[in-house]
């Protein structure tokens, strides 16, 4: 089983985000970057599938700047066999990213290509689906349970009010949802071994794209919470505040 996972480097979700001087990008100084959390489900699933198959190759792909090598090495530390960094400056147009990834993935002979269902930095939900389309492969999004038997893929998706079960056959592209698995921590030996694993750097040039970011704004500051009291005695005060102050009941 040959599996590729496409991984994005994103700001840690607990980082306090500041907007850069241009008003269109975030100020990266002092920001901690991590693998996109949804991609971690993809990483874990790939490793589990390879372990269950007993053989195969897991390859992690990332499109980004040089700093993304660190993100790739996180996957190598978890157990991936090798990494590929498509070196390019970030773009707001997911289609440009998808084209670059698809061009490289096309001849990789992958049975499965896995993505996170979205990247937490831009919430676009785009790239995985676009890559599937460009490669003319079946695509199942937001997978929360997965079984691969032979060339048959059976996936569950959480939809409004229920669970949908979908099948497709390999080769396929899937995007992963929270709940699919519990991503492992890289072991300390894995971290040391990752330094010695192959990481290929490939410069790519992206097209100009047809989507432009006009501006970024922070959400309005939330008012601090208030503890009204404890136990049943606090209920009347809480109800009054919800009615009079918050106006929600």
């Amino acid at each position: 089983m040959r599996i590729a996972v496409c991984l994005k480097r994103v700001p840690d979700t607990t980082t306090k985000i500041l907007i850069g001087a241009d008003g269109k990008s975030i100020d990266e100084s002092g920001v901690k970057f991590v693998p996109n959390p949804y991609d971690e489900y993809a990483l874990e699933e790939a490793l589990k599938l390879k372990e269950a198959a007993g053989s195969g190759e897991t390859v992690v792909y990332c499109l980004g700047g040089d700093a993304a090598q660190e993100t790739i090495r996180t996957a190598l530390a978890m157990g991936f066999d090798r990494g590929v960094l498509l070196q390019a400056a970030p773009t707001a147009d997911g289609f440009e990213v998808a084209k670059a990834l698809a061009a490289d993935l096309k001849d990789g002979g992958f049975d499965l290509i896995l993505f996170g269902k979205l990247a937490v930095d831009d919430y676009n939900h785009q790239v995985g689906v676009m890559v599937a389309e460009l490669l003319e492969r079946p695509c199942i999004t937001a997978v929360s349970h997965l079984v691969v038997a032979g060339t048959a893929v059976t996936a569950e998706r959480e939809i409004e009010g229920g669970i949908e079960t979908v099948t497709a056959s390999l080769p396929a592209v899937l995007s992963c949802e929270k709940g699919l698995n519990t991503p492992r921590l890289p072991s300390l030996k894995g971290i040391m071994a990752a330094k010695k694993k192959p990481l290929e750097l490939k410069p790519v040039s992206l097209g100009a794209g047809s989507v432009t970011v006009l501006g970024l704004a922070l959400p309005p500051e939330r008012k601090p919470g208030q503890i009204v009291g404890e136990g049943p005695d606090a209920v009347p005060a809480l109800v009054r505040l919800l009615r009079e102050d918050a106006g929600v009941i």
Partner: peptide, 25 residues
């Protein structure tokens, strides 16, 4: 909210990548 370790002097930058990775794990 989760633990936010203090780093007033940007000591993070004095650590090698794998040292940070080990710590974070």
């Amino acid at each position: 909210a989760s633990y936010t370790p203090p780093d007033f002097y940007q000591i993070e930058g004095l650590l090698a990548e794998e040292e940070r990775a080990v710590r974070d794990t």
